[in-house]
Design a protein around this nucleic acid. Structure first.
Length: 866
RNA sequence: GCCCCUGUGGUGAAAUGGUAGACGCGGCGGAUUCAAAAUCCGCUUCCGAAAGGAGUGCUGGUUCAAGUCCGGCCAGGGGCACCA
């Protein structure tokens, strides 16, 4: 009698039993025996309080990998924790008067419950939240080690200021000129901030990222672009002449930097003979010095600043400049004097904030030169062009070629000329080879409460004093108030007032906290072990990391840098220096959007599908279907995982988010798809339910039994391979084909029972990574030993995987005209003869000479005719 | 502007250079049912009655054979961007 599988009861039951058995606890290294280790990690969640479908997809993927590895005999570490610091907790405090810690821990409790419902094979014994004082205390100790080593420093600089979140942001957190969280237009402010010296690792981070062969190419490229290494030269241009006003400065006593050589960075020293001017950034020190004495220059700086730094403004901004009156000597010709300008297209933050303009070889320089009537001398001859007819009008030639009009560089290729020019500069002492990075140091202090306090004390007499190790952790005060803008730690009446640890005089705690990206930069190491270096060495690096691509230049770059810094202070010893050996970036979950007749966004629960289209339930009005977009609160196109789980079960949710699209691509959540997944669950259960109770016979040796066994054994191999290669949708397709075959075999009667039972026993184990609860129920139904979640991956028989006959397509001139089934090892000439005798081919071969026949054993026969 | 990725049925998508469209969704037809739901079976790239022909964004090439490799274009997405 056919029964239905009831997910709600079964799922809870199995989760309780797994928990009681401690099934997913990682084995300590000493107990692991010969089993290889596998550290499988998904980017840990921010405890917003509510799980969304994107989480389900992310963690389901990690769980497939973890469960598969476990079945393959690995000692698996698959932990879970909480990225718990951050602004939403403070916003909750401001809006609702809830203490951020209370709010956060309550969210963690409810999300933990939701996670547990998904049946993930997690080792919860290692759970922690980054806001636990014990965790951030360890982080403070790490900070102090970095400080001592010079990897962390404090400096005044121009920083990105988010006026909505009231805090500083790192360059990586400014997207298109806006704050990554608030979306507010970011302002530039001069502030003293804490920096992590990520640039100390720029070379290594770039070189090593190319070797991460189990990372997506896309992420590697993004990191390489972000680091932005360029090879070139620094050139010092001697001052020949300064304006009169400036010449007086030194006479008043102070040093006169206006007479120091001007440092310029270039990647094209081969075009030095095409130089026609120098251009300094508007906020270059020399520009500022001159501005103090020259109203025209001051006005120019004001104008350049006014245009702003937003992307749009920069795109449209005209090239502006002002002659500073300074003149410099060309390094290769002391008689050659060039003017020094300030130009708004020169960035103070890149290179030395100064360039030499070589208009024939650079479009911006050319535009600038044309506008202000500066000379344009071509020095690179494109391949095939001749010196007589090559002319630069209003398009610069930036490509490679042969150097001319360039003294000793004449006749060299651009590459050779770069080398020769640098060599000559070095001989003259006028320049040197130099590598410049786009990457800036990570400004990681934040003017917020809910973060890790920076463990230093400012003393008027002693300066910046580290908090003594014995006083760590520096805990956040629990009685902070959030009723006014600004940093609550700074407003707190007593927290910051402490005696200086060195001299004992009244001093002041640092009230900035660390960027929450610091918390996530080393948490994987904490999962590996709280403090035991040997245990960390055993588990690390993370073998498979899974998360969103939005962290390509944020978390994933910071973590790599932190791993290096931790190595340099003796905290971590990774063989390759890399924390994440394998990375997979999953796509998002999207959904249709819906708009009511009067333009309100509607949630999927507010609409109904009728024969005449979609209508809004509340009003009966027609609903307009909008584009398919990432699920978001604002578009209201979200689906509540709780509802899915309580209606269909966690297995259905897990199955659906993995089944429809390749994991790296976005998947569209559809009601029809979920129902399809639910149907598959019942269909699969029916396969097991249709088997006889009690022991089943051994598989038969008749042709049909063997054919069915072949399907099963091949499917196991295919699924194994697909999971290993992160092709979960393909694994699922194979499972579908397999269950279809098993279903069909039910009609064949008792002869196939043995083969069906064997297939079912294998299927239960292959289903486990995807639908663990259903698999467990099925496993119990056929009397499987223990938990299927603890069972080994099914063994397969080579003789059943490899066929002894093969079906070959037979082509004539590359077009398929028929097929033959022959013994796998039939000699090529016999295959050819058999193929040529196919009746379907007669019409295509008639009256035409066979030029040759290609026989690819096991693949194809192609007969080539005239 | 530079760099990268992706273009395959109504739809999500498969396809170590070797039978294009597996598998799923949807649709159509049928069985079961008093009826429906559920379930099961069949069909479902296009043109054509069929034989057959065409077909993986466009275009050219390499090859016995191209969705797959190479060149040029077009479209969509992403990254970087007055970066010297």
């Amino acid at each position: 009698m056919a029964t239905r599988y009831e997910p709600q009861a079964a799922e809870q039951k199995w989760r309780d039993e797994w928990d009681a058995a401690g099934l997913f606890k990682a084995k300590p290294p000493a107990e692991a025996g010969d089993a290889p280790k596998a550290f499988v990690l998904e980017m840990f969640p921010y405890p917003s309080g509510k799980l969304h479908v994107g989480h389900v997809r992310n963690y389901a993927m990690g769980d497939v990998v973890a469960r598969h590895r476990r079945a393959k005999g690995y000692n698996v570490l698959h932990p879970m924790g909480w990225d718990a610091f951050g602004l939403p907790a403070e916003n909750a405090a401001m809006e609702r008067g809830i203490n951020p810690a209370t709010w956060t821990y309550a969210n963690i409790a409810s999300m933990r419950g939701q996670f547990k419902q998904l049946g993930l094979s997690l080792d919860w014994s290692r759970e922690f939240a980054t806001c636990d004082p014990e965790y951030y205390g360890t982080q403070q100790a790490l900070f102090l080690k970095f400080l001592e080593k010079g990897l962390v420093y404090r400096k005044a600089s121009k920083v990105n200021w988010d006026p909505v979140d009231n805090t500083v942001l790192a360059n990586e957190q400014v997207i298109d000129g806006r704050g990554w969280r608030s979306g507010a237009l970011v302002e530039q402010r001069d502030l003293t901030q804490w920096f992590f010296k990520i640039t100390a690792y720029a070379d290594d981070l770039l070189d090593a990222v190319q070797k991460l062969d189990r990372w997506p190419e896309k992420v590697r490229t993004m990191q390489a672009n972000w680091i932005g290494r360029s090879q070139g030269a620094t050139i010092w241009w001697e001052i020949a002449e300064v304006p009169e006003a400036l010449a007086r400065i030194g006479k008043d006593g102070g040093p006169n930097h206006a007479t120091d050589p001007i440092e310029v960075y270039t990647t094209r020293p081969d075009t030095l003979y095409g130089a026609s001017f120098l251009a300094l950034a508007p906020d270059h020190p020399l520009t500022r010095t001159i501005a103090a004495h020259d109203p025209d220059v001051a006005a120019f700086i004001a104008e350049a600043t006014r245009i702003g730094t937003s992307e749009e403004a920069i795109e449209k901004a005209p090239k502006l400049g002002v002659d500073l009156g300074v003149r410099v000597r060309h390094p290769f010709d002391p008689d050659w004097v060039l003017p020094v300008w300030s130009a708004n297209f020169v960035l103070s933050t890149y290179g030395s904030g100064a360039i030499f303009g070589s208009p024939a070889g650079d479009q911006r320089d050319l535009d600038f030169a044309r506008k202000y009537g500066l000379p344009v001398k071509p020095v690179v001859l494109p391949p095939g062009a001749s010196a007589d007819d090559h002319e630069i009008v209003d398009e610069a030639y930036t490509g490679a070629g042969t150097i001319y009009n360039s003294g000793f560089l004449d006749g060299l290729t651009t590459d050779a000329a770069i080398t020769a020019a640098i060599e000559h500069l070095e001989q003259l002492g006028a320049g040197e080879s130099k590598t410049v990075f786009r990457l800036r140091d990570w400004g990681f202090s934040r003017q917020r409460y809910w973060g890790c306090p920076i463990p230093v004390i400012h003393c008027e007499a002693c300066g910046v004093v580290p908090v003594p190790a014995g006083d760590l952790p520096v805990r956040l005060p629990e009685d902070a108030t959030f009723d006014k803008p600004g940093n609550p730690l700074d407003h707190h009446p007593s927290w910051k007032h402490v005696p200086c640890p060195t001299c004992g005089k009244p001093a002041r705690r640092e009230t900035d906290t660390l960027d929450t990206f610091v918390d996530s930069s080393w948490y994987y190491a904490r999962f590996a072990s709280v403090s035991d270096p040997a245990e960390r060495a055993y588990w690390l690096p993370v073998d498979q990391y899974v998360g969103g691509v939005e962290h390509a230049v944020l978390h994933l770059l910071y973590s790599r840098a932190f791993a290096r810094a931790m190595r340099d202070v003796g905290e971590l010893d990774l063989p390759s220096g890399e924390p994440f050996a394998g990375l997979f970036t999953q796509g998002m979950v999207t959904h249709e959007t819906y708009k009511s007749a009067d333009g309100r966004w509607l949630s999927p629960t507010e609409i109904e599908r009728r024969s005449n289209g979609l209508i809004e339930i509340a009003t009966g009005e027609h609903v307009e279907v909008g584009p398919i977009e990432k699920m978001s609160k604002s578009k209201r196109n979200t689906v509540d995982p709780d509802v899915i789980v309580s209606t269909y079960g966690a297995d259905v949710a897990r199955w659906f988010v993995l089944s429809d699209s390749p994991p790296e691509r976005d998947v569209e959540w559809t009601q029809a798809g979920v129902e399809g997944a639910a149907r598959f669950v019942q269909r699969t259960w029916s396969l097991f339910d249709a088997l006889p109770e009690g022991p089943c016979p051994a598989p038969g040796t008749d042709a049909d039994s063997i054919a069915l066994r072949r399907v099963s054994h091949k499917a196991v191999r295919a699924i194994d391979k697909a999971i290993t290669e992160f092709r979960f949708n393909s694994a699922i397709a194979t499972i579908h084909e397999w269950t279809n075959a098993l279903k069909k075999a039910e009609a064949a009667g008792a002869d196939l029972t043995g083969a069906r039972a064997e297939g079912a026993a294998m299927l239960a184990r292959c289903l486990t990574p995807f639908m663990p609860h259903l698999a467990e129920t099925c496993w119990a139904r056929i009397g499987g030993a223990g938990f299927v979640s603890g069972a080994a991956w099914p063994a397969t028989d080579d003789s059943l995987v490899e066929d002894d006959t093969v079906t070959l397509a037979v082509q004539v001139n590359g077009k398929r005209r028929g097929e033959i089934t022959v013994a796998r090892d039939m000699p090529a000439d016999e295959v050819e003869a058999a193929a040529r005798n196919l009746p379907e081919l007669a019409v295509h071969l008639e009256g035409r000479a066979v030029k040759k026949a290609i026989v690819v054993p096991g693949r194809i026969v192609n007969i080539v005719v005239a």
